[in-house]
């Protein structure tokens, strides 16, 4: 029971700060789930992010479900996911009930223009932190560049490839040309 409560509170806190589509969450997740609580490794988080790209739903919600399930099975998964959803639900209920033009308030616009700067830094840190472990050789670098190109220019290219297709193709690429010694368990904790 105590552990379920801990799960709920942990993901409630994470749900409070999910700005910028979840990608900026990686440094926060690494900090809270790996370094502080040791509920999972950074490598596992990356795997969850990769899986989250090709399954429905918000990536951070997927991570909540994964970690909850890992700690306490299905009840854990439900409690963690509910914890993650609680704050966004309350905030939107308050906005829907009381504030009609919330997003137009100058103070709100200024605050979130500031937060977006922090989101940029957080995403940059996520990439730097994970680079060494994921882009392990030239083949992986090539794959990174191809996926980056196709994603960034998806709106300009004649055919835009859905993210889910890119992810599945990358998995197949790995199965065909990859190396095996990159899986999570062997690599130990964070080197910081």
């Amino acid at each position: 029971m105590k552990e379920l409560w801990e799960l709920f509170i942990c993901f409630l806190r994470i749900g409070m700060v999910t700005f910028g589509g979840g990608y900026a969450m990686l440094p926060i997740l690494v900090r809270d789930l790996d370094e502080k609580r040791h509920w999972c490794t950074t490598d596992e988080l990356m795997d969850y992010f990769a899986i989250g790209q090709c399954t429905p739903g918000v990536i951070t919600l997927n991570v909540s479900t994964f970690i909850g399930n890992k700690r306490k099975g299905i009840p854990g998964a439900l409690v963690a996911s509910l914890g993650f959803l609680t704050v966004p639900i309350i905030i939107i209920l308050i906005i829907a009930a009381f504030l009609t033009n919330f997003a137009d308030l100058p103070v709100v616009k200024d605050a979130f223009a500031g937060i977006r700067v922090c989101v940029c830094v957080l995403i940059l840190q996520a990439v730097l932190r994970l680079w060494k472990k994921s882009v392990v050789d030239k083949k992986a670098l090539g794959l990174y560049l191809v996926v980056l190109f196709l994603t960034v220019f998806s709106s300009v290219l004649p055919v835009s490839i859905p993210a889910a297709v890119l992810v599945i193709a990358s998995g197949v690429f790995g199965i065909l040309f990859g190396k095996e010694n990159t899986l999570t368990q062997e690599s130990g904790g964070e080197d910081e």
């Binding site: 990356m46 790995g174 999570t184």
Partner: peptide, 12 residues
């Protein structure tokens, strides 16, 4: 996962 991780970083 050898392929999925670079793809994930690319999307981030």
């Amino acid at each position: 996962f050898y392929g999925l991780r670079p793809a994930s970083i690319a999307m981030i």
